[in-house]
């Protein structure tokens, strides 16, 4: 971008034009545009889209996708991948239910599940950064292992949860806004700060973008990778708590094949699988888009079979546009236009 001081004197139209062009250089713009188009379409198909009830359930769904989507975004920025989200959501939910069943309070249970999430993250992070296994394999094994533990420990039956305090997390409202959504927005702000204004954030982008340069400039690969998987573990655990609270039970069979949907929402939000690129805002947009697509298919009374097709097409289109836009952005940088 040229730094001419034309901004103040330029005609308003030109300024708007520049603003628009700047907007479309944001990686998140694809997801945002798709989001607006889909929202408008849904409203046209069924005006009940804007009813308080529907917006509340949409917000809750966004939060449920959103927590693990932020986790996935952090991990993918570090050039890693996590295939275990679905199994983890089932596993933590079952553990939460079993802890409360055996008499632990809500606070202890939530703390224990979050700590468990960080321990699983520690295991993933060490396998990846110390034993040097590929993140794909480590988390593929976990996909199997933790689903297995969830099923074995419950023999396949759901664990019922009746603790009022726990159910509040997923089912209640604060000024008409679902609690999970409020928590999600707060989490989003925290992680936006973490990624953009802390040393950890800078290290994360550096390691994902150019591991060798990061190593040479003294950034500890092990520390950063272990930390990112631990944080992601806690985020996923929190998503699982909301899910369990929403359903009032820990279900061993829940969230099957979720992992790919979670990764999809990160990718739709402009996170690059090659690492070093991605934002929390993008994860929010991606999660919102997925929640909106589900909501749209329900409201338009289309067969739920179409859900997968539409999501698949959106993934391909979003990334296609993004790749083309990135190439153009690079051209602009290279040729100084």
């Amino acid at each position: 971008m040229s730094k001419k001081s034309a901004g103040l004197h330029a005609a308003p139209l030109a300024r708007i034009g520049r603003g628009v062009r700047k907007f479309f250089r944001l990686r998140e713009s694809v997801a945002l545009v798709l989001l607006v188009i889909f929202a408008f379409l849904v409203y046209l198909i069924n005006p009940r889209f804007l009813s308080a009830y529907n917006l509340q359930s949409l917000a809750r769904q966004i939060a449920i996708f959103g927590f693990p989507a932020i986790a996935a975004t952090l991990i993918i920025i570090s050039a890693g991948i996590d295939l275990s989200f679905g199994s983890m959501i089932a596993f933590y939910g079952v553990i939460a239910g079993m802890l409360m069943e055996s008499g632990f309070g809500v606070g202890t249970t939530v703390a224990a599940v979050l700590a468990l999430g960080m321990m699983v993250g520690l295991y993933h992070g060490s396998m990846i950064s110390i034993v040097k296994l590929s993140p794909f394999i480590v988390t593929l094994a976990s996909l199997s292992i933790f689903r297995g533990i969830a099923v074995i420990s419950t023999r396949g039956y759901p664990v019922r949860i009746t603790e009022e305090g726990f159910l509040w997390i997923g089912q209640e409202f604060i000024f008409g806004i679902p609690v999970p959504f409020v928590l999600f927005i707060l989490t989003t702000l925290v992680f936006h700060y973490l990624l953009n204004y802390t040393a950890f954030g800078k290290h994360l982008y550096a390691i994902g973008g150019n591991p060798e340069a990061a190593h040479l400039s003294g950034i500890s690969h092990k520390k950063t990778i272990i930390m990112v998987y631990m944080i992601a573990g806690a985020l996923t655990a929190f998503g699982a708590i909301i899910m369990a609270s929403r359903l009032a039970q820990g279900m061993p069979g829940i969230a099957r094949a979720y992992e790919l949907r979670i990764i999809a929402s990160a990718v739709i939000g402009g996170t690059s699988l090659y690492g070093g690129v991605g934002t929390v805002f993008g994860a929010v947009l991606g999660a919102s888009l997925l929640a909106l697509i589900e909501n749209m298919l329900v409201l338009s009374r289309v067969d739920s079979w179409w859900n997968d097709v539409v999501i698949g097409v959106v993934i391909v289109i979003a990334v296609w546009v993004d790749v083309v836009a990135t190439r153009r952005r690079l051209n602009v940088k290279l040729h100084g236009k």
Binding site: I81, L260, A264, I311, G312, I315, V319
Partner: peptide, 16 residues
């Protein structure tokens, strides 16, 4: 495009 994304799209599309 990354093979992961391309084939993730197809996983969803063709199952659907």
């Amino acid at each position: 495009m990354a093979p992961f994304v391309v084939t993730l799209g197809s996983l969803s599309i063709f199952r659907g």
